[in-house]
Amino acid sequence: MNISALADRFGLLVIGLVAFLAILLALYGLAELASRRDRSRAVATVFLAPAVIFLLVGLVYPAVRTLVMSLFSGDGTEFVGIDNYKWAFTNPDALQTIANTAAWIVIVPLLSTGIGLVYAVLIDGRRGERTYKALVFLPMGISFVGASIIWKFIYQYKASGEQIGLANQVRTWFGLDPINWLNVSVLNNLLLMVVLIWIEVGFATVVLSAALKGVPTEIIEAARIDGASPSQIFWRVTVPSIRSAIIVVAVTVFIATLKLFDIVRAMTGGHHGTDVLAHNMWDQAFRLGNDGRGATMAVLLFALVVPVVIYQVRNMRRQELEGR
């Protein structure tokens, strides 16, 4: 790396930051002008304009385009109506992909939240709590690509000779034959999920642990005085008081799971019955030249999140009623 290459990049960075600052100042000036004349609409426009323009160009237009593309053939030239959807619900490979995704979005949020919650409760108030938390939290900062490399050293398989994957080494220690984990159907799906769970449990632990700290000690004390057992306290007091935090965690993990693509791409490429919607969408659209089918998979992805959106909307309505 020579000096001029460094200068180029950092020069660009400085120019970019200055330009951005100028834009912010300009927007602020505009908003100030509009505020003085007390025009809420105008102020709102100024505040919202950058975000809305970005989103229209970068997400809304692509979403609409995807919806339209799902009604066209592979190369996008021929209108095929709902043929792609028929394919998605009849082709055995596509069905397998949908089934896998269904398993992912049930198992991963459930286990991540569950393990995170139990772990958070167990380490709550324990000596070295922060270290406990940090150790589990660590994977959250690791990229999916990095995580895939890490887990290759667990699942790696050699037919004979010395194992370099930990999982097979453990089997060998117990006198069992090594298994080519990622090629064994059904099991390999679970093993890929383990990678994501490994990442998300830290997130769940940290959020839920913070929520636990917010549960008033009087309530727990009162329950204890009433003679409730630890498990009763857990189920009847702790869980209900942090219910909303649990939901936030579960929903966040749910969306992350649905969008998951990198782990499957890097570890199995979707072969051996491990494909999921987000990866198959990529495969169809970018590797196999089936833009229409890829778009269809993307639309199915949207559709799966609709319940979450509805839940959120109802939640907001309720808050609206309670709040003001």
């Binding site: 975000a51 989103l55 160009v57 970068g58 997400l59 809304v60 237009y61 692509p62 979403a63 385009r65 995807t66 969306i255 649905l258 969008k259 693509f261 987000a278 969408m281 990529w282 659209a285 970018f286 890829g294 778009a295 993307a298 992805l301 949207f302 999140v305 959106v309 959120q312 909307v313 907001m316």
Partner: peptide, 19 residues
């Protein structure tokens, strides 16, 4: 607001080519 919330789920892969 709801529209923006819902945009969270647009897979960014599908936005690559148009953008």
């Amino acid at each position: 607001y709801i529209a923006i919330f819902a945009l969270q789920v647009v897979p960014l892969q599908m936005a690559l080519i148009p953008l």
